[in-house]
Design a protein around this nucleic acid. Structure first.
Lengths: 215, 215
DNA sequence: TCGGTAAGCTGACGGCATGACAGGACAAGT
DNA sequence: ACTTGTCCTGTCATGCCGTCAGCTTACCGA
C-alpha cells in the first residue's frame, strides 16, 4: 500500500530526507495549533524547521498538500474509533456505559487533533473532495458502527421502522464533532465541562435507542 | 447603534463611497462562495468589483475585516431565528410541528449563508474572539430559546431534573449547524435529503422533551 | 582508496500580493 | 470659476511564492 516516500521531483527519500520531511510536518502541525490556517506560510514552517522554503517544496507541492498528509495520519488514528461502538450493547446499564464511553472517546480524539480537524472540516465544507474523503474516513469509523447498531435494534423491533439509521447516526456524530470543536463556546455559554459529557451521552442514547438510559 | 460608516482613515463615507463599499462586500461574498477562504485575495475582490486594491483598503483593514462585516449582517439575520422556538409548544402534535419547523428554518438559514458561516465557524474554532462573539450571537438566538423551553418543561416535571438545559440546547443546535454545513457528506453517505429532516426533527424532539414525538 | 551516482539542501530570481501614500478626479455648494 | 471634502488610483517598498541550477553530502561498488 504505502510505496516508498517520494519527493516532488520523483526521487525516493532516504533516511535523512524522511527525517526532514517529518520535521516539516511536525512544525506545520505546531503552526496550525498556534495561528490561523490562513496565515500559515511556507516560509514560516521552513524557518521553524531550521531549513529553507525550497526544501519544503521538495517534499510537498504546497501547504495544502502537507496538510493533507497530516490529515491522513489523523484519519488513520481515527479509524480506531470503531471500537468505541462495534459489538457493544445498547440495553440496560451497559447501554448507558457504551454511550458514555463513546462520548468520552470521541471528544478525546477530537481534542487531541483539533487543529488539523478544523482544517479538514473547512476543506470538506468548501467542497474539496480530498478533504471530504478524509473526513468521511474519520467519521465513518463511528457512524458506520452506529448505523449497524441502530439497524440491529430495528430488527429486534426496539426502534421504530421509520427512522433512518444512517441519518440518525450521522447526525449524532456530527453533533459530537461540533461540540468538540467549539467547547469554548459552551463554557462561555454557562455550561460546565463536567455536565457536558453526561448530557451528550444522554442525547446519544436517546437518539440511538429512542429511550432514556438506565443509569 | 450603527454610527455612520467610516473609512479606515476616519472620513465619513458619502453615497458613492457606501455604494462601492457595498459592492466590495458583495463581491467578497461571491468569492467566498466560489473559492476557498484561504485563497481569497484583496486584489481579486477589487478586480471583480471593477476597482483597485487601494480602494479596498480604504474601507477595510484587510480581508478578515471585511468578512467580519459580512458576518455581522448574517448575525443580524440570524437573530430572527428566535421566532422558530420562542413561545411554541412542545407537547403533542404541535410539539412535533415545532420541531419540524425549527429544523426546516435552521437548515434554510444555514444554506442561505453557508459561505460566510463556514468562515465564522473556522474563526471561532481557531479562537478568534470576534468571530466567537458573532457565532454566539447567531446560535444564541436559537439556543437561548431552546434552553428556556427545556427549563419550562423541567419546571412542569416533564423533563428530568438532572439534564442541563443549556448543554442539551447547545448540543442540538450545534448538531443542526454541523449537519447543515456538511449536507453533501450525508448524501455521499447514502442518506437522502428527504429523510434527513424528519430524522433531525425526531432527534431534536427527543432531546428537548425526552420523548418520542406524536406525529 | 577512490570515483560515481543519487539524495539532500540552498541561494537567488522573477512574479505577485500587500499595504501605504500622495496626488488627481469628481461632485456640490458658493 | 473657486473651494471643499469625498473618492479613487498609480506607484512603490516590502515580503512571500514557487522554481531552478548548482553545490554538498552520503552511500556503494570496484
Amino acid at each position: 500500500m504505502t510505496g516508498q516516500v517520494r519527493t516532488v521531483d520523483g526521487r525516493v527519500a532516504g533516511r535523512r530526507g524522511q527525517a526532514t520531511r517529518q520535521k516539516l510536518l511536525d512544525c506545520l502541525s505546531e503552526m496550525l495549533s498556534s495561528s490561523p490556517y490562513r496565515d500559515v506560510k511556507v516560509i514560516d514552517v521552513a524557518r521553524k524547521a531550521g531549513t529553507s522554503p525550497a526544501t519544503f517544496y521538495q517534499y510537498f507541492p504546497d501547504v495544502e498538500g502537507a496538510v493533507l498528509e497530516l490529515a491522513e495520519d489523523v484519519a488513520k488514528e481515527g479509524s480506531g474509533m470503531t471500537e468505541l461502538v462495534a459489538g457493544r450493547s445498547w440495553v440496560g446499564k451497559s447501554g448507558w456505559q457504551t454511550s458514555e464511553q463513546l462520548v468520552e472517546g470521541f471528544l478525546d480524539f477530537w481534542r487531541r487533533n483539533d487543529a488539523i480537524l478544523r482544517v479538514i472540516d473547512l476543506g470538506a465544507a468548501e467542497g474539496d473532495k480530498r478533504f471530504n474523503k478524509i473526513r468521511m474516513k474519520i467519521l465513518n469509523s463511528v457512524t458506520g458502527s452506529l448505523t449497524e447498531s441502530v439497524k440491529e435494534l430495528q430488527a429486534k423491533g426496539k426502534v421504530d421502522k421509520d427512522v433512518s439509521p444512517a441519518a440518525v447516526a450521522g447526525s449524532l456524530v456530527v453533533m459530537l464533532a461540533g461540540v468538540a470543536s467549539h467547547q469554548k463556546g459552551f463554557t462561555a455559554w454557562g455550561v460546565k465541562q463536567a455536565e457536558l459529557k453526561p448530557n451528550l451521552a444522554q442525547l446519544v442514547h436517546l437518539g440511538i435507542t429512542g429511550k432514556k438510559p438506565a443509569k
